[in-house]
Write a protein that binds this DNA or RNA. Sequence first.
DNA 1: GTCTATACTACGATAGAC
DNA 2: GTCTATCGTAGTATAGAC
Lengths: 211, 211
Amino acid sequence: MIQQRLLDVAVREFGAKGLDGASTRSIAAQAGAAMSSITYHYGSKEGLYLAAADYVAGQLGGVADDDRLGAAIEAGDSAEARRCVHLLLGGLLARMFEGQADNWALFIMREQMNPTEAFERIYAGPMGRNADALVDLICVVAGTKDRRAAQLAAIALFGQVLIVKAGRATCHKILERETLGRDIIQSYSDHVAANTDTILDRMIAEREEQA
Amino acid sequence: MIQQRLLDVAVREFGAKGLDGASTRSIAAQAGAAMSSITYHYGSKEGLYLAAADYVAGQLGGVADDDRLGAAIEAGDSAEARRCVHLLLGGLLARMFEGQADNWALFIMREQMNPTEAFERIYAGPMGRNADALVDLICVVAGTKDRRAAQLAAIALFGQVLIVKAGRATCHKILERETLGRDIIQSYSDHVAANTDTILDRMIAEREEQA
DNA sequence: GTCTATACTACGATAGAC
DNA sequence: GTCTATCGTAGTATAGAC
């Protein structure tokens, strides 16, 4: 399928070089198609960019069982909500280390730094649902109605996940490795999980202090 | 000074569009100079890019008092080392919110995702020194010789700082704000500081358990 | 639906006037 | 040291053959 090949290459090229930097000639050539096929299928370079954004957004789903997350939030089950926080963050972290992650992660990073219409479309999908769920889950775990505190905690927790991609080169320098093996990935996942529990415990303790 | 104006614009343009995406014509025009002045001063587009990288690297210094950090590490003073960790992370976080930060932060983010020679030059400066100092400080605070654990902790801690830039658009969505006011910035700084203390305390407890 | 051919613009680099 | 002029290449978009 020529459209599928175009999208795969487009995500990689737009991610690596941005909308301006990537060229339709190069994308078409790598996909084994004529440049005019992009115009035919997507109208223009921008059309292909937005199509690539939608494609990326769709691939962000399934990181955790949305139904289970929703049920835990609905039920207000603190213990189950904590398990869901770990499922969500662990799932996201695992995604960051998957082989194809570089392609779409670069695309999203770029949109984060300089958001265009494409970011709205990406965030409207599974990405935004994951973010909302994390905030809701933290509220349930901490037993707090202080949503702002839960939002701040969600950002900090997500930062621990994001850095392995957004600061990949620095991580390699700090760990003195050019590639990260399974043992290090597992160690970091364990460390993040432990941090998460510690932070959630502190939020619970702070809430009980105030009460 | 025409070279200074060229560097300022170059950092912004290369950060926003990358080496390929940015154009020397546009950079020169915004700096109020002829395009050939880039060739004259920097030899080529790549030369200007590397000069911009060096300029960015230099601006990352002074986030914390290097002498004080070094002294705390040298002395093995746990309490002072913890204060230094807060100084370093707090200083970095404050830098992330400074007005001009977008320009150089975008430049560095881009290099993180797709490192070139420019990243080596940036990391060889204050950025790498800050990273090394953070790992050393954590070792002192936790009283551990498990350097790998300190490295993982440093990455997680730094992730909490990085996300406000690398995931800026998502932060705005989560906090339901289009801009982040001083009150929210202060709240997040406090949250990160509290997380940092909690994590360091846990590392100390884990070390004492093993002993 | 996919290709080739082409029009037009913008790019980086260089030469030479001042 | 800064400018204008120009060269060769590569960019997007479009038209039209098949």
